[in-house]
């Protein structure tokens, strides 16, 4: 029996889709069967981020309405064994699917896959309600900025009223140089405010833009800090105890000093 995670944030543009794609790819890379479900009906993007946009035949709404079988709508990612995408409909309305239908769909998927990751639309309306309906667990993505953290706090409250009581936090796009200058809230500040458990920290990394341009998950990019962070998150989801990268807080200067003190990078 698989587990259903909803990846949500409240605010748009903080990296929900990128996070979903990369955690999913990393989970598949570790030998799990994974389906990524795009719940952002009308504004789908998980397909382009994954580079699978040209292979879509059917979508989520087709499955829900019985226009095709579930298996027909799943797009297999040839680069990662065991990774599948269930695309959102692009030309339909959010009301084309109900929370109950999403629940049933998630239950069906749970029987066939180890992990189901739902890419939740931004906002707190119908699309959010649909996305959380079938979820067992929630991942809240935020960036260390006031608007994103405020919305994350609101989402945490709404998740609780949907019986998702222990969401885990991904702090995305952390800029180590700015944190060091005191111009960006650090991990501690953000956790202090939101008060939920930390799942991982993803440093700001231009490789994200580059890999998304190409339609490849960043975890496939060697030497990418963000990629490494997503792989670590996937490991934690599987129950492995992976320490939070001290690397996250590192810059070249700190690296040098650490080496000087004999506490070099692993």
């Amino acid at each position: 029996m698989g587990e259903v995670y909803v990846v949500t944030s409240g605010k748009g543009g903080v990296g929900k889709t990128t996070t979903t794609a990369n955690i999913g790819a990393a989970l598949a890379m570790e030998g799990n069967s994974v389906v990524l479900l795009d719940a952002d009906i009308g504004l789908r993007n998980l397909d382009v981020v994954l580079g699978l946009e040209n292979r879509i035949v059917y979508d989520l709404i087709d499955v829900v309405e019985g226009a095709c079988r579930l298996k027909q709508a799943l797009v297999k990612d040839k680069r990662f064994d065991g990774l599948f995408l269930l695309p959102a409909a692009q030309t339909r309305d959010k009301d084309a699917v109900s929370p109950k239908q999403m629940q049933d769909l998630c239950n069906e998927l749970k029987e066939q896959f180890d992990y189901i990751l739902i890419d939740c639309p931004a906002g707190i309306e119908q699309g959010f309600k649909n996305a959380v309906a079938g979820a067992d667990k929630a991942i809240v993505v935020t960036i260390p900025e006031v608007s994103a953290v405020r919305d994350a706090d609101r989402i945490i409250g709404l998740l609780a009223s949907n019986d998702l009581h222990y969401p885990e936090l991904v702090i995305n796009r952390l800029r180590i140089d700015m944190v060091k200058r005191g111009d960006m809230m650090n991990i501690e500040d953000t956790m202090d405010i939101l008060g939920i458990d930390l799942l991982g920290v993803v440093p700001d990394d231009e490789n994200i833009v580059i890999s998304t341009n190409r339609g490849e998950p960043v975890i496939a990019t060697r030497n990418s800090l963000a990629g490494k962070a997503f792989i670590n998150i996937a490991k934690r989801i599987q129950g492995f105890d992976v320490p939070t990268m001290d690397l996250d807080e590192d810059s070249s200067i700190v690296d040098k000093l650490k080496r000087l003190f004999g506490i070099g990078k692993k």
């Binding site: 900025e145 005191g182 809230m185």
Partner: peptide, 8 residues
């Protein structure tokens, strides 16, 4: 006076 403390 750091801006992150103001944000917080």
């Amino acid at each position: 006076s750091s801006s992150k403390n103001i944000a917080k």
